[in-house]
Simulated scan of single mutants.
Amino acid sequence: MSDSPVQYPEVYSSEDIQQIIQIALARQGEDDELTRKQLWEIADELNIDLQTLQVAENQWLQYKNTAQKRQAFDLYRRNQFKQKTIKYSIVNGFLISLNLITTGGISWSLYILLFFGLGLALDWWKTFHSKDEEYERAFQRWSFQNEVKQTFNSIWQKLYNSWQS
């Protein structure tokens, strides 16, 4: 066996460069952050023109913003499902208790439990299955409603502040 040194390639693909830089940045530690100026300097060294970098940065910001909105939407849906589950438990607990008190057993309340349970199961599917068109439509609807609320609140706040002055 011979001890041959590692042979480094003369040319790297952009994907290889991206992976190497990600590994190097990760090894530096989580506390090390780069400034926007440093980003520009790295791009300059890689012969990436400023306009291309700005377009990429804008795309990244849009992606990050959308990811945060989706995370907020998912949290909203989970909270809605949690509230429905609590209501389901309270109502069905009451009905089962009423059934036990009145008849000494569980008879008619079981049918209501199963019927409401079906609705809860469908809500569970809608809440946690987030890879289809229905999810995307619900997200777009929620996002639009939030934008309208923010716009309305902003206008209302401006009117309120001008009225207070």
Rank of each mutant, 00 (worst) to 15 (best):
L100K: 12
L98Q: 04
E33Q: 13
S13H: 03
Q38W: 05
E57G: 02
L61D: 10
I86H: 06
V55D: 08
N79C: 02
Q83W: 09
I106S: 05
Y88P: 00
L75M: 10
R36T: 08
R70G: 03
S4L: 05
A56P: 01
G105N: 11
L34Q: 12
R27M: 11
K82D: 04
V55T: 06
G93A: 04
N92G: 00
Q71R: 10
Q59K: 11
L53T: 01
S97P: 01
S2A: 06
R27E: 14
I101S: 01
L100E: 07
Q19Y: 04
N58K: 13
A72P: 00
E15T: 15
I21N: 01
R78G: 02
Q51L: 13
E10S: 12
G104D: 04
A26K: 09
E15F: 08
V6G: 01
T85E: 02
D74I: 10
W60C: 07
K37I: 10
N58H: 08
Q38D: 05
A56I: 02
W40P: 00
F73M: 01
L100A: 11
S89T: 14
S97D: 09
K87F: 14
W108Y: 09
N47L: 07
V55R: 09
L39E: 07
Q7K: 14
Q38V: 08
Q83H: 07
T66W: 12
